[in-house]
């Protein structure tokens, strides 16, 4: 799923500026699962904003609304009837959602309440961890199912570097060395001989390097 962090409250307040009628838009997908932008978090941010403006003694209106998704036009379109009642849409979706809402309502201010961070997994309730960088050319078959691009701080294709110590990365003692994980897994699979293979220079054109990406499946198009 896509994981994010909620922005600091003061940053959000600063961003909103003098806009006092806010449509706070949550998303029921990834950001709900990672506890950053679902119905619950919409409720919390709305409450914080109300407390803030009440304390300041100023009028403020926030409409709480959570969409099934903010990455599909059909759902975004559901707020069209009342979007005009608000000065700004404050979206709690990932960066994709925020942009798609902005595309749908061209004359409406749309702002992000979330910093989108990574593609990851739930390690345990309340803990998420990065796994993929969407490079567009997966090599997990060669690396024991552990991605060196996402999980090595230097994205080394032929690691580990000299900073791997006790299974941890030199960049942060809390972070596992991706290459240690690869070697452990290859060992468990009885495939450590694969470590001897040199992974060739990567063609980054499948990644963001070739510009914004688009995918089309003709058979699914209407």
């Amino acid at each position: 799923m896509i994981v994010g962090n909620r922005k600091e409250f003061q940053e959000i307040v600063g961003m909103l500026g003098s806009n006092r009628r806010v449509l706070l838009l949550g998303c029921n997908e990834c950001v709900t699962v990672c506890g950053v932008g679902g119905e619950k978090e919409v409720g919390v941010l709305a409450s914080e904003l109300r407390i803030h403006w009440k304390t300041a003694g100023e009028t403020f209106e926030v409409k709480e609304h959570t969409l099934e998704r903010q990455c599909d036009y059909e759902y975004i379109d559901q707020v069209r009837g009342f979007v005009g009642d608000y000065d700004v849409i404050l979206s709690m979706a990932c960066g994709a959602g925020v942009q798609y809402v902005a595309e749908a309502y061209k004359t409406k201010l749309v702002m992000p309440a979330v910093n989108t961070t990574f593609l990851g997994v739930t390690l345990e309730q309340g803990v998420w961890s990065e796994r993929c960088q969407g490079c567009g050319a997966c090599i997990l078959d060669m690396t024991g199912g552990v991605c060196p691009i996402a999980r090595c701080a230097k994205s080394l294709m032929n690691g580990p570097c000299g900073g791997s110590s006790g299974g941890k990365c030199e960049v942060d003692k809390e972070v596992d060395c991706g290459w240690q994980l690869i070697i452990d897994r290859l060992t468990e699979l009885g495939q450590l001989d694969r470590y001897e293979d040199i992974i060739p220079v990567k063609d980054w054109r499948s990644s963001r390097e070739a510009g914004p990406r688009k995918r089309i499946r003709e058979d699914l198009r209407l």
Partner: peptide, 27 residues
């Protein structure tokens, strides 16, 4: 490969790592 920029005077910088030291040797 090079030390990670975290240890330096510009930890805010973006690293490149287009290729790694092994691939640089090959290059």
């Amino acid at each position: 490969s090079g030390d990670h920029q975290k240890f330096g005077d510009h930890p805010q910088g973006k690293n490149v790592y287009d290729i790694d030291s092994m691939q640089l040797i090959q290059t």
